[in-house]
Computed example of a mutant assay.
Amino acid sequence: MSRAVRYRQFGGLDVLELQEVPEPHAGPDEVRVRVTAAGLNPMDWQIAAKPEMAARFGITLPAGFGSDFAGVVDEAGAEAAGFSVGDRVHGAAIGRSVADFVLVKTPTTTLWRTPESISDEVAATLPVAGLTASAALAAIGLRAGDAVLIGGAAGGVGIFAVQLAKLAGARVLGTASERTFGFLRELGAESVAYGPGLPDRVRALAPEGITAATDLFGREAAEAALELGVAPERISTVADGPALPGVHATGAVDAKPGSLERIADVIRSGELTVPIAATFPVEQFREAVTMQAGRHVHGKIVVTL
């Protein structure tokens, strides 16, 4: 037997259970990953709570939980391609990652080798958040000299977007709560409080104007950018809900090939850091999900197995 966080009905935290399940084994064209760490994302608990969101990702009940994972390949089918037993890997398996084992069908575009200098805890935070940040910035054609407003800059996706934008040569203004300002300064962003009056605060901070924006939390930053005269095609959003006219709605699936490898490279070089707000053993997964769902986390939350 093995362990997995699962749920039999949609709902809040109380529907999630750490269950004993039959140990899975790799099929002919699959590899099995012994999971050591799983990074949490807001989409994980949203899928578990909202049937309509689960349907978008092909999740049906009963279901597993989580999307991102890291670990070691410990079984490989005779026809498995690209990976071998003993490979350290990280990947995305929507609705399946918080478990002792994850099966991945090969060949695949959702499993990557983990560089030697990157820990499993860090690797487990990369797929969804890293690819989403990369896609959000690519959608607006971010370039050196831009002044970009990033909504939700201190969140799990924001920490990647802020640093990637800085590496691209942009000036970064990030929305956050005031208690997060110091954290964002360490990442290279100029902080601006979210909430009513955001356009005026951005105008005061950047009187020469902003040229681009990405909203990683809702629509407030995107709407502020429109009010400040930013062209819709230079604004992106990643949250659910009705799209703003002309604004790019994007997500991890839109990331360009090689995006995650490039993120791993700048982590290895020390140009990008991944703040991990907290780690919890899988037995304390409820505490981890509660912290994630609070949406006031500075960095990523990781469950270890």
Rank of each mutant, 00 (worst) to 15 (best):
S2M: 14
S2K: 03
S2P: 04
A4Y: 05
A4H: 07
P24Q: 10
D29F: 14
R34Y: 01
A37R: 06
A37P: 05
R56S: 15
F57T: 11
I59Q: 13
P62V: 07
G64L: 05
G66H: 10
G66C: 14
F69S: 08
A70F: 01
A76N: 04
G77A: 09
E79P: 05
A80R: 02
G82E: 12
G82D: 12
F83D: 07
S84Y: 02
S84N: 03
A93D: 01
V104R: 02
V104K: 02
K105H: 15
T109C: 06
R113W: 08
S117Y: 05
S117N: 14
I118Y: 06
S119E: 07
S119G: 13
V122W: 01
V122E: 12
V122I: 14
A124D: 01
G130R: 09
L131Y: 13
L131G: 00
A133V: 00
A139M: 02
L149Y: 03
I150S: 00
G152K: 00
A154T: 15
A154Y: 04
G155S: 10
G156R: 00
A176E: 05
S177H: 07
E178H: 11
T180D: 13
L184G: 04
L187A: 10
G188V: 01
Y194E: 08
G195L: 10
L198N: 04
R201M: 08
R201P: 10
R201N: 07
R203I: 06
G209H: 11
L216M: 10
E220V: 05
A224D: 05
G229N: 05
V230N: 00
A231Y: 10
P232K: 03
P232Q: 08
R234S: 01
V238E: 11
P242D: 10
A243R: 11
L244K: 03
G246A: 01
H248E: 00
V253D: 06
A255K: 01
A255V: 02
G258K: 12
L260T: 04
D265R: 15
V266M: 10
V266Q: 10
V266G: 07
S269I: 12
P275T: 15
T279L: 08
F280Q: 14
V282W: 12
R286E: 13
V289M: 12
G294E: 06
G294T: 04
G294M: 06
R295S: 14
V303F: 06
V303K: 12
